[in-house]
């Protein structure tokens, strides 16, 4: 019984939780080695074999999915083609600069694909656009949190000092014995906190 009690106490300490989580997750991943794994060949958004488009000499090599700019749509195998009425048009679209680059050299495939239009943009903005909205919201929230902390605390610490002075004055005006008890209490708690978190 005392062992279980100790275990519960350990579980109540936040410092141990990431470690426990890491161990459990690591063990679960090891289980993955005894489970038969294999890629289902019937996927959506299939891409051609590596290097095959380079060997074929296509100008926007690994990302050529057919279609002509503003003339015919490219090939996009969406999950629900009926939900995306303009399927494939973004896929085949290229900006004028991208077309210029395409004419210049066959080695700019990745850059051209990253400019507006192209296959990745079709997935990121159109067929799975909601994912990208969430993703950019996550980035925005992270920046809000980080910059709020940075601006309000780590950079501007003047307010903090004022608060501390107020607290000092309040403590001084109150009963001296209570003050001492409070102080020693605080010290003891700090000591314990140090023990726990160091």
């Amino acid at each position: 019984m005392p062992k279980i009690a100790k275990l519960w106490n350990k579980l109540a300490n936040p410092k141990n939780i990431p470690r426990l989580f890491a161990v459990i997750l690591g063990l679960l991943l090891i289980v993955g080695f005894i489970i038969p794994m294999g890629l289902n060949t019937d996927q959506i958004y299939i891409r051609p074999a590596p290097q095959s488009q380079m060997d074929a000499g296509l100008a926007i090599a690994p990302y050529d999915r057919g279609g002509e700019v503003l003339v015919s749509p490219g090939v996009t195998e969406a999950q629900y083609p009926e939900n995306s009425k303009n399927l494939g048009w973004i896929n085949s679209y290229m900006t004028p600069i991208a077309e210029l680059l395409k004419a210049l050299s066959p080695y700019f495939g990745t850059s051209i694909c990253a400019s507006p239009g192209g296959l990745i943009d079709e997935i990121l903005y159109y067929t799975r656009g909601f994912d990208t909205i969430l993703e950019s919201s996550i980035l925005m929230m992270a920046f809000i949190i980080a910059s709020w902390l940075a601006i309000n605390f780590t950079i501007d610490r003047k307010e903090e000092r004022d608060i501390k002075e107020d607290v000092k004055r309040a403590i001084a005006s109150s009963d001296r014995i209570a003050n001492e008890v409070e102080e020693s209490n605080r010290k003891a708690r700090e000591k314990q906190a140090k023990k726990e978190f160091r």
Binding site: L39, Y45, R47, I123, M141
Partner: peptide
């Protein structure tokens, strides 16, 4: 997974990690 879809899914994964490590 090696499809175009997985290439597109890498971006959200990367951004989430980036955002969390920053915060």
């Amino acid at each position: 997974v090696g499809t175009d879809l997985s290439e597109a899914l890498i971006l959200p994964g990367l951004v989430v990690e980036l955002a969390e490590i920053m915060a």
